[in-house]
């Protein structure tokens, strides 16, 4: 875990408020730093800061450091923290909110795999209305590390052999309507 020095000077006192106004973020102010979330989190060991510490940083206003950390990118959305938090804070929802802010503000570090994965996924869904796993994986690997293509060739073959990789992509009929929905929704983003 990387507990590097935080940027004192960059404190943003409104950060807590910003998060508290996002869906699920309302209760973050109630956090009493018990660490149940971190102790339960399957990926806390690879996070820069544990979820608990991240929340302390949010409350203190270390916006830069929070958004620069890998913590929320490692959230697998398993919700174990959310169901156990004694203050009933919707931790997983906060992690989602942080991902969105980071992508929007391009806090994403170069080669941030999760960010690349998510945007590849979204591109396909916005185009076809359905996800298409083979294309997703290829796009993602090309974006991040093309050698992955080779490393995963065996896996791809295995799946193909067992009839679990389709060749043709699936598209919905109402693609135009879907795009209209998306266009309108984006104009009303929170």
């Amino acid at each position: 875990m990387n507990t590097h020095k935080l940027k004192q000077k960059a404190i943003d006192k409104d950060f807590l408020d910003e998060i508290a106004h996002l869906p699920g973020g309302e209760r973050i102010i109630d956090c009493f730093q018990c660490g149940t979330c971190s102790g339960s989190c399957p990926t806390a060991h690879v996070m820069d800061h544990t979820p608990r510490r991240l929340f302390a940083m949010v409350k203190a206003g270390f916006r830069e450091d929070v958004l620069n950390s890998n913590t929320y990118w490692y959230c697998t959305s398993c919700y174990i923290c959310t169901v156990r938090c004694p203050r009933q804070i919707k931790i997983t929802d906060v992690m989602y909110a942080l991902k969105r802010i980071a992508l929007k503000e391009r806090y994403v570090r170069r080669k941030n795999a999760a960010g690349a994965f998510y945007s590849s996924f979204v591109d396909i869904v916005e185009r076809d209305g359905r996800s298409f796993e083979p294309e997703l994986m290829v796009r993602f690997m090309l974006k991040t590390d093309p050698t992955l293509l080779l490393k995963n060739a065996v896996l791809g073959l295995k799946l193909m052999k067992h009839g679990r990789l389709p060749i043709r992509r699936n598209r919905i009929k109402a693609r135009n309507e879907l795009r209209a929905i998306i266009r309108k929704a984006k104009s009303e983003s929170l």
Binding site: M1, Q33, G35, T36, S38, G39, S40, C41, H49, T50
Partner: peptide, 11 residues
């Protein structure tokens, strides 16, 4: 026992 030692900051 799985716990975060919050003073040390480690799981």
């Amino acid at each position: 026992v799985k716990v975060e030692d919050t003073l040390v900051g480690s799981i």
